[in-house]
Design a protein around this nucleic acid. Structure first.
Length: 386
DNA sequence: TAGAATT
């Protein structure tokens, strides 16, 4: 774990000397890292709360001074590392690394709610601008959650290459409060790629900006710009989800795709569930170790698949979305505790066709769903040790 | 013509 934390914390002084971050000394960083490693090796800190949550006069919890949103987190940062980093500042009331509901992958942001507003302020001053691997994290107060601030992100294309981020903000600021803006640049030359993002505070502000600016030429520009709502990266299409699952599966089974034989195996993975039958029994057998296993299927309904290590929050929709892309699914079931109604950690999926079921198993067995590794196999006639 | 910003 220490190695993990060290790996994440390739701490560098932010390049931007205007950042408040620049005032923090190396001694402070080393203290933070030291604290983190102590906490990690000691496990989670205590849960006693000397101060209760701040309660406003109308009875609602007011966390506007304690609750932070953290953006631009490294993709591979875990909840544990996230908590360690922010726990090094002060006592945390709650924190959450936000993950994709289906794939379990980090969405690159999270929330930290401190017990003490002073610690929230300290976290902003200390950790905003911290470089973790290739990312520079942003730490700021979370706005109160509401529907009006969702889906307020715009994708802008056709921008003049000479237009700066500041220019773009100036153009859009007439429609509302801008939360973030970004112009994408060529990684080698650093020249604008003519596309960017603008996130407004409110969705209706974003709508007005589309009405006012889509198809318009900025002052002095030769071409009109396109302004539309950005795709939501957490709402992946079935195809994108599949690609991600296959990439994970292919990496597990073949490692980096350097060899022709491995490329061929990936082709098999990709083609099979789109109905292009270039099915290789050897590939499947090597991945699922079916030899000698006593299967229950096919029953009248199809092939029954056992899925183990689901989270207590798992529901049927997760199973549909995990297995659906591989072919015909006729039934899914999450096994729940009778009293709590939480998932007991496993479920079943029935698929009509053997090859599609085998492909789903080959791809999803060992698949990491959040911080859990799924075990997926054909259901056997023997009672599973669970 | 594509970022991981509302639990």
């Amino acid at each position: 774990m220490h190695t993990c934390v060290r790996a994440l914390l390739k701490v560098k002084k932010p390049a931007n000397s205007n950042s408040r971050q620049a005032a923090v000394t190396w001694a402070t960083w080393l203290e933070i890292i030291s604290t983190m490693e102590t906490q990690v090796s000691n496990g989670p800190s205590g849960t006693s709360l000397p101060n209760g949550p701040v309660i406003s006069t109308n009875g609602a919890t007011d966390d506007s001074k304690t609750n932070l949103i953290v953006n631009y987190l490294p993709q591979n940062m875990t909840q544990e590392e996230f908590k360690s980093l922010f726990g090094s500042i002060g006592e945390i009331e709650s924190c959450k690394l936000v993950r994709d509901k289906i794939t379990g992958q980090s969405l690159g942001y999270g929330f930290v709610n401190y017990v003490d507003p002073n610690d929230a302020d300290k976290a902003i001053n200390t950790l905003n601008g911290l470089k973790l691997q290739t990312k520079t994290i942003k730490v700021s107060y979370a706005r109160p959650s509401s529907a009006s601030i969702r889906d307020a992100n715009l994708y802008v294309s056709g921008l003049p290459k000479t237009m700066s981020q500041k220019d773009m903000e100036q153009l859009f600021s007439q429609y509302g409060r801008i939360i973030t803006s970004r112009i994408l640049v060529d990684q080698v030359t650093g020249i604008s790629r003519g596309v960017g993002f603008i996130r407004f505070d409110k969705r209706n502000e974003a709508e007005e900006a589309i009405k006012g600016l889509n198809g318009q030429k900025p002052l002095g520009a030769a071409e009109p710009i396109t302004v539309k709502f950005a795709n939501n990266p957490s709402q992946k299409t079935g195809q994108a989800l599949l690609t991600q699952l296959y990439q994970t599966a292919a990496r597990r089974f073949t490692g980096p795709l350097h060899h022709q034989t491995q490329r061929f195996r990936l082709d098999n993975l990709l083609n099979a569930s789109y109905g292009v039958k270039r099915f290789s029994p050897i590939t499947i057998d090597s991945m699922t170790s079916l030899a000698g296993v006593n299967l229950t299927g096919p029953t009248g309904a199809g092939w029954c698949i056992f899925v183990y290590n689901l989270s207590p929050e798992a529901d049927e929709s997760v199973l549909w979305q995990l297995f659906g892309p591989f072919g015909a699914v006729t039934n899914v079931k999450v096994i729940r505790d009778f009293t709590t109604n939480k998932c007991k950690g496993f479920g079943f999926v029935t698929m009509t066709n053997y090859d599609e079921a085998a492909m789903a198993i080959a791809s999803l067995n060992g698949y990491r769903l959040g911080d859990r590794v799924l075990q997926v196999s054909f259901k056997t006639s023997k009672q599973h040790k669970a």
